Amino acid sequence: MDTIRLLLNLLWLLFQGWLLALAYLLAGVVACLLIVTIPFGIASFRLAAFVVWPFGRTTVRAPGAGVASALGNLLWFLVAGWWLALLHILSGIAFCLTIIGIPFGIASFKLAAVGLFPLGKRVVETAPPRQWMRAGSGVVDGAPAR
């Protein structure tokens, strides 16, 4: 499973990841020019690292993200989020024109939602999928089921 993720990430980086990362880095640099928008820059840099290598990782809501994150996301959406999401959507459509590109298109569509509202989210590793559970044994992949 890790080999497939590695291959998908390498192809993603070659075809789209580097361009999207540059867009997020540009947004982060612009956001860091003003002191009050540094949190937006930090979020943008975090997402730049995520869009370079997205397979095997996901975003989750950060604990303690409250009203400030929601208001920040609204401001982010108005200033930078919509055009970053537009890049994801356009590239996702282009990828979905070929059968081989569909997994990349789906990943791009998922990243569009993250690009719209990045504040209050953390990037985490995804757990490898469980193969299957042996009927009645209570054992999954050689380990006791919980």
Rank of each mutant, 00 (worst) to 15 (best):
K110P: 01
F45I: 04
P128W: 10
G66R: 04
I42S: 01
A143H: 07
L47N: 15
T59Y: 06
P39Y: 09
H88V: 02
I38L: 14
L71A: 15
A127K: 05
A27Q: 01
L22W: 15
M133P: 13
G56P: 08
I106H: 12
A80K: 08
W18D: 06
R46M: 08
L74P: 07
R57A: 11
R122M: 07
W53T: 00
L119H: 11
T126E: 15
R122P: 02
L116Y: 07
G120E: 07
L78N: 03
L97Q: 14
R5M: 09
L6A: 08
R61S: 08
I93K: 15
G64Q: 09
Q16C: 04
V140L: 09
Y24K: 00
A135R: 14
S137L: 14
R130G: 00
L14V: 09
P63F: 00
I89W: 13
L71N: 04
A21Q: 10
V79G: 09
T3D: 13
A94D: 02
W76H: 12
A80F: 10
I4E: 08
F55G: 05
G101N: 10
R122S: 08
V114S: 14
L8E: 01
D2H: 09
D141S: 08
A85I: 03
F77S: 01
N9G: 02
G17E: 05
R146A: 09
L90V: 15
P63T: 00
N73H: 07
P103T: 05
T98D: 12
L97R: 13
L20C: 04
L90Y: 08
R130F: 07
